[in-house]
Design a protein around this nucleic acid. Structure first.
Lengths: 193, 193
DNA sequence: TTTATTTATTAAACTAGTTTAATGTTTTAA
DNA sequence: TTAAAACATTAAACTAGTTTAATAAATAAA
């Protein structure tokens, strides 16, 4: 059940068999059915999760009621609201399952225990946070410099396995455009071919 | 000379007098005159810097020649291209001094030495990267959901000390709009008052 | 199996933001 | 101290993306 998690950790840092076992024992499995939430706006995020099955969207609802999707998480991705988690303030985000999903969850308490007792875990999360940050930095530049059309094309090239599982409404909310405009883009691309 | 650096580190984690001294000794000062570069596109970023005087812009030039500013860094801010630094690939960013500036620089080698020999430094950079990531995540949501006008108003409210030192061209490149449109926004705001 | 709900598409009017170009002002360089 | 370069503003034509609304198709619910 935790094989995927162990494999994921090993990609970032090298741990002894004991260390990885100790760390993984701090996680427990949660099942979240489609349309249910792992986190809602206003709650304080007291966990970090690793998806082993299914699909989540992490999104924000602005004061006009529009949704912006920060990212999607499928198998092998980590999920949390790092803002609420570290500052212990109410989250501004929703984490919602778009499919029936399974996630391995570690509590804030246990994560701090790991930091204190398994020194390499500190490195693990430094490295992971750095990688996440790099990805977001690239996305920020793309959003500042590219048209919605090329952002869409690059998205489907980068995550071909994801688009099949997402509605165009979700993709549009990720790209920062309306689903109507996404339809126009799709038509334009289809004509080109 | 390194008082500001020590103070900044103390804000994130607590170190003994010796630890902080050892770590700060790994930094050396660099002076960068206005319009000069700490890093250029294509170079591999082998340092992390802490600004003690002056002002930098960290930006990208897209294939159409437009500049997108990822962030500004004044006194008390850290600068690096975390992407190039961690992956050791050529940077896609420029780090340019907008004023005559002073920066304390630690090499990648020495930073790795610190990670290996001063365990709390691992925590320092994990915590700092987390904070930077939270800030970027908030900016991403703002860029997806807010108009350029409210992004501008929020920018001048959030960084009043910065705007006085920046041209409108720089501010526009940060907001992701043209300086012409920023002029329109400024006029509109001025009329309102 | 029928009905209700969500999704995708299209059209048409609209608005936020761009482009190009001209003009005056401020800053920098020689 | 003058010339050159960078900056800020304005106008006018344009384009990327939104809004509202209608319609058909697909999915979920009863």
């Amino acid at each position: 059940m935790k094989a995927l998690l162990k494999q994921n950790i090993a990609k970032h840092i090298s741990l002894s068999e004991n260390e990885i076992e100790d760390f993984c024992n701090l996680f427990e499995q949660k099942l979240i059915c489609k349309k249910n939430f792992l986190l809602r706006e206003g709650e304080i995020c007291k966990f970090e999760g690793f998806v082993t099955k299914g699909l989540f969207r992490i999104y924000h609802i602005d004061k006009n009621g529009f949704e912006q999707i920060l990212y999607f998480a499928i198998e092998n991705w980590w999920i949390t609201d790092i803002d609420s988690f570290t500052t212990e303030t109410p989250s501004q985000l929703f984490i919602e399952a778009l499919e029936d999903s399974e996630v391995l969850v570690i509590s804030k308490k246990d994560k701090e225990f790991a930091y204190a007792n398994l020194p390499k875990i500190e490195k693990l999360f430094r490295v992971m946070t750095q990688k996440t940050h790099v990805a977001l930095q690239r996305r920020m530049i793309d959003n500042l410099s590219k048209t919605a059309e090329s952002r869409y094309i690059e998205f489907i090239e980068k995550y071909p396995q994801l688009i099949q599982r997402l509605s165009n409404i979700q993709i549009a909310a990720y790209l920062g455009i309306t689903n109507v405009f996404l339809s126009n883009i799709r038509k334009k691309i289809a004509v080109k071919k």
